[in-house]
Nucleic acid binder design. Sequence first.
RNA 1: GGGGGCGUAGCUCAAUUGGUUAGAGUACCGGACUGUCGAUCCGGUGGUUGCGGGUUCGAGUCCCGUCGCCCUCGCCA
Length: 626
Amino acid sequence: MLRRTVTCGQIRESHVGQSVTLNGWVNSYRDHGNLIFIDLRDRYGLTQLVFDKEDAGVAQAGIMDVADKLRSEDVIAVQGLVRVRIGGENPKLETGKVEVVVGKLEVLNKTANPPFQPDDNTALANEELRLTHRYIDLRRPSMQKVLTARHKVYKATRGYFDEHGFTEVETPILYKSTPEGAREFIVPCRNVPGTFYALPQSPQLFKQILMVAGVDRYMQICRCFRDEDPRADRQPEFTQIDLEMSFVRREHIIEMMEGFVRRLWKDMCGYEVPAVRVMGYREAMEDYGIDRPDTRYGLKIKDISGFAARTEFKVFKDALEKGKDRPAFNSKRGVVKMIRVPGGAEKLTRKITDGYSDLVKGFGAGGVAVVKVIKGEDGQPRLDTGIAKFLEPLKAEFMSELESLGGGQVGDTLLFVADAYAIATKSIGELRSKVARDMGLVPKPGAEGGPWNFLWVVDFPMFEKNKETGKWVAMHHPFTSPRDDQMDAFLRADVEDDDTIEAIVSAGYDIVLNGQEIAGGSVRIHDGALQSKVFRLLGLTPESAKEKFSFLLEALSFGAPPHAGIAFGLDRLVMNFVGTDNIRDVIAFPKTQIGADLMTKAPSAVPEKNQSEVHIKSTWVPAEKK
RNA sequence: GGGGGCGUAGCUCAAUUGGUUAGAGUACCGGACUGUCGAUCCGGUGGUUGCGGGUUCGAGUCCCGUCGCCCUCGCCA
């Protein structure tokens, strides 16, 4: 086999006169009979090859006949002379000033007619086909760029944490089932009939144990598994950059991770990340209606419950009756919230705002009330349409409410949602994001030069109520510590004491980028008694806590250091760097929405013999046999 | 589990209210051509309209079911 001396992206004018050998795939051919052009492709680029009948005398015998049969995706090796292009430069190619006149051609492998062309310039084949023939799709230059970008993220990550004294430790994939949280993939055990491993949702407990083991600074680029339905940005198996540090508090993690983020963005796109703002969960929920606010645009939310109570609008008054004896910010206490949309009066048509009501109904709210600010006969702003008649009597007061949102200007649309705190907040938060898209306020992600907007969100609640079971669940995970100043309330709280439990603040933290959570973590509990208390509030009996987590409670009793950690979603980081909103684009061999691999046809049936070997029997009956 | 979208030639798409033999570009096959770079020109092969059923004189088109893919709600400690 002729082995390459240069790559297809490498040849320049400095190579002119040299004999070179190239290996690659035929990207395209232009056959003029006695003159044939081939664009040869490898992952580094394209080089134009020329087969010329007049030169064929000095080339291998019959070369034109072989070259004539070359087709896209054939694999070949060529040897030839680099020269300046006779037909003029092709400015589209890096190698566009030169060409290789081929003297020797070796066809390494003819291709079958490919189901689609791995070409970024023509219409992309549908994703199903691309996933089935992933090896062809990955040949596309843009997919090669993704693989390379992902590799660079691994490299920068390991580089940074190595420099800061972290040790990469592998943790088990075959793991103990701990069925809190996400549904697990389970693996039957052959040696102990009737038992199962689970695949880890994350290495959470192992990394904490490593802290007890004195590893002090741990990191791992690790695969995590969650058997939940995928989304555009979620896969059943995904990759985390997992970290844990001993003898630190929140501020130390924040400092170390900002350093990492700064390093990563610098290496990946030369961007200097400025100091990252820290925002409290309460502020995020109040101003943005979500715990991961997109701060690339304004449209802040305002609570106007006090004002709304003085109007005669029944919807407001009814909402404010809800949970009126509960403390402020309690999930069940009624509130009225408002967004001011500058310029919305023109763009947000009746049809669109009707759609907003449908949107919030999906989150349990009754609808969206709308008011437009128009120019009155006296030239002053006047409230119009919708519920304007309820606000007009209190207009002066209402206009002063608007002051903190920039004042009511002619052309504004004002949107209102009234309901219990949890529902109203979530609804208007989702509404804000929808309005921003409708108003064209969301910049394209970093790839197009839009801003990278980083944010720490801290001071999350420890617990939230599961709507179905009515039980308390950990908002982050059950190993998250209460914030230091919350210890009294935490120790005092009883399972029945809903309002107290809801108000406890944890020592958790998230990094949010452009409205997307890219990392989350917490200071951990390193005291067995505190950990047992969390289990108790979560409704675990001491017996079941011991059965599931005895190894953790035991480890905490043997000199566990204070520790804290965080994990980044690596796939989402790469998505940002390559500018895609499809997670499958950044995973070499991704799965579909039912967790299938279209290329290998996984999952698949296994013979009953293999099932009985691991002591299982499928209960599934095909439909036609029912 | 719920809601929505899509499925027509190898690929990307078209096909009027349900109406003749389902078209185009590209790929592929054959031919011509010495400066192309989305080569060009001439000719050709290629279809169970995802699958099954129904309505109708007649279904790519309407209805029911089913499969696959995508988006989304639930779910994702």
